[in-house]
Design a protein around this nucleic acid. Sequence first.
RNA 1: GCGCGAGUGGUGAAAUGGUAGACACGCAUGCCUUAGGAGCAUGUACCGCAAGGUAUGGAGGUUCAAGUCCUCUCUCGCGCACCA
Length: 825
Amino acid sequence: MSRYNPQLIESKWQKKWSENNYYQADDSSQKTKYVVLVEFPYPSGTGIHLGHTREYTLGDFIARYKRLQGYNVLFPMGFDAFGLPTENYAIKHQISPIKATQDNIQSFEKQMKLLGFSLDWSRKINTSDPAYYKWTQWLFLQFFKHDMAYQTEVSINWCPFCKTGLANEEVVNGRHERCDTLVEKKKLKQWMLRITKYADQLIDGLKQVDYLDKIADQQINWIGKSSGAKVKFKINKSHLTVEIFTTRLDTIYSAACLILAPEHPLVNQLTTDQNRAAVNEYIKETQSKSDVDRQIDKQTKTGYFLGSYAVNPINQNLIPVYIADFVLANYGTGAVFGDIHDERDAEFLRQHHIKATVSVVPKDKQLAQRVIDQTEIFTQDGYLINSDQFNGLNSEQARKSILEFLINQGLAKEQINYRLRDWVFSRQHYWGEPIPIIHCPVHGPVAVPDQDLPVELPKISSYQPTDDGKSPLSKIASFVQTVCPICHQPAERETDTMPNWAGSSWYYLRYFDPNNDKFFVDPVKLNYWYPVDFYLGGMEHTTLHLLYSRFWANFLADIKLLPSPEPYLVRRAQGIVLGPNGSKMSKSKGNVVNPMDILNNGYGADSLRLAIGFIAPYDLTTAWNSEILAGTYRFLNRVWNIINQFVVDHDNFKIIDENLKLEQQLKVIINNMVNQVELDLNKLNFNTAIASMMEALNGLYKIYQKSINQIKLEVWQNAFETYLIVLSVFTPHIAEELWQIMGRDQSIQLSTWPIVDQNLLINKTITLIVQVNGKLRGTLNIKADLHQSEVESLIKQNQHFQAYLKHQSIKKVIFISNKLINFVI
RNA sequence: GCGCGAGUGGUGAAAUGGUAGACACGCAUGCCUUAGGAGCAUGUACCGCAAGGUAUGGAGGUUCAAGUCCUCUCUCGCGCACCA
């Protein structure tokens, strides 16, 4: 009997599978389709890491399970090759990004194959391939043609290290999420996509899909819808008005001042000569500070009085106008009224000695008094005081009434604001899709005609971005100089490129039809495959890739390029794999576990795959633990040994003393396992599914060692074969090898998922729980479906239980058939 | 501060309101041997000789019955954050 040698069998089967194209999805199948999508990787130089391995292994479990169930499964893979990581890698290693990408893709693909993923490699895509980005550019032009892409001079987040603009989503704690450099503000003319137009749809669409709650919550949070009102404040002795945004119109009687953002356009006009010098000084100061610096000390509310006064439209009170850097220029109207019912405002009033009035108090009288005395700040909804005819209303009623009152005078209107900003879509980098626009002195920005797509990236020698905020493409005259497609007069190409999120915003669609050079995807294939049935990815993309790609799909559905707006029916996120010491894996900490090392250590892909499924629930962040691996390896050895033993015993098999009860037991073990694994896989409980397989194997061992000759050969054969089919979802190589050793010619992948025998699930005898006053007092092995009276009489005959019930009056008996009996005494 | 989620053995973790700790790691004892990165058997929450009692971060509550439901509270993780 041979020993289990994963390296030998794994490479053998990987080769066979790829030769036989088992995983190529069929575009014209009669079967029901099922698309399993996992986020495609950046092909960085370090090869795949354990995080990829977890994500793709879990996706592979689903894909293999669905395939055995008879679905036409599409489980594709590609490479998100544009973007900063690849460019930085190329610069560092002094090779061209094209070459770097090719090399890295090759090694990624090789490594993924070593892990036995059932990917359809015939559909491989690469976002940096001109044949692919031709359609990224074409799709961008659809945005442009529908006024969804526009150019504007904006103050953008600028990364001085990467020398490029960033989207809000890429800035984390004031730093660029990739390189951790402090982000600066810079005014640049940028291409923007109107994602804000889809804010409501992106919230509402979540109701139609099955996303993990926290994913949906995070997206809703990020979009940050808030309903309130815009109110006009007239400036005293002036024709000017300042518009403010508030969600708390019920507190307007408390408005003690107006506060504008330093960048507010009216600041200059509202500043009196007397204050001008100091105000300008303050503005200069804030501009020199980064967002992070501004937020370092949230307690100190700096600001400056402009010299003007505004008129509170509700009561005609004159209130001073200030600027302060805690008011954000790019949210709402860039101006607010300051009042005591907001913690920040209250702090501002206190620090600048502005007199505050209370207008909302809580119901609790003692608390209300403290609020009136201004010893306590009350920011919640309550009841109105000091508010003329609105006194006594609750906050919600007051908001409505006051809004109506002001609307009638033309001084207010309802307003919904979002935190979500339009998407800065320009990058000043070489390694991205060129934005396919030509700037004509006469016609302005003009779309590159479809027949001229793709606008290919020119090959250049220096990829280094420039300091002046321009893409390196701007230095290539032969690229820049062109003619206007409308008037054929000299014109210039756009030199900005798209962000790395562009290619990934629609990549899943390209898998449906990866080689089409006539259209981004053939409508017939699109209708068959769209939408994605199951999408697994990282939590970190919830407000980046996931939101962006939903936005693209929503827009493309609006212009009839997609059948429906929501691209992913189910979205789940796998947990992060931490280093063995419980902290994030990183080179500097020296706690990186490389999946390829695990393979080279002789454990093999099957043990690794199993360990990944077994270590914890799939969505839990978990520290890598190589002892789990030793356990799964041991388990596979036991599977290997018992089946090889069976094949040996098979030849000299003689039935002795046939035992039908034992045979039934064997069948029940297998049937229970299939049932349990099926239930668990449907819920993505891979860890308990694998535990069920281990439990079943323990059961098989027990019966096999003692009583192999008491059960018919074909029952054994059937049990082991069923076992292997279920196992093949998790560990395809060893399953395939043992399947062959058992004498089957056809691949185990072409088998069908076993059917659970419902009759075998019903137990003939059960273990009844016996409780007294809810406390466990023992169990009783009895026939199933006994009546309460029968059970009670059995218990009364039982000395052990009698000890508890004797001399007691039984008040009540709770009886749940086949489960429990509880005596209340 | 806001939004989500989680707290269970020495460890990773199981438990449709119904036997808490499945499965696995580790450990202990024994067996076997071709002495291995093995294999097999038994045991392994805590207290107690036992009968029994106590245990799911803490405090209450609902219930015949609570890890699970409710209220309060503590701790940790993730996300967002001067968004009016």
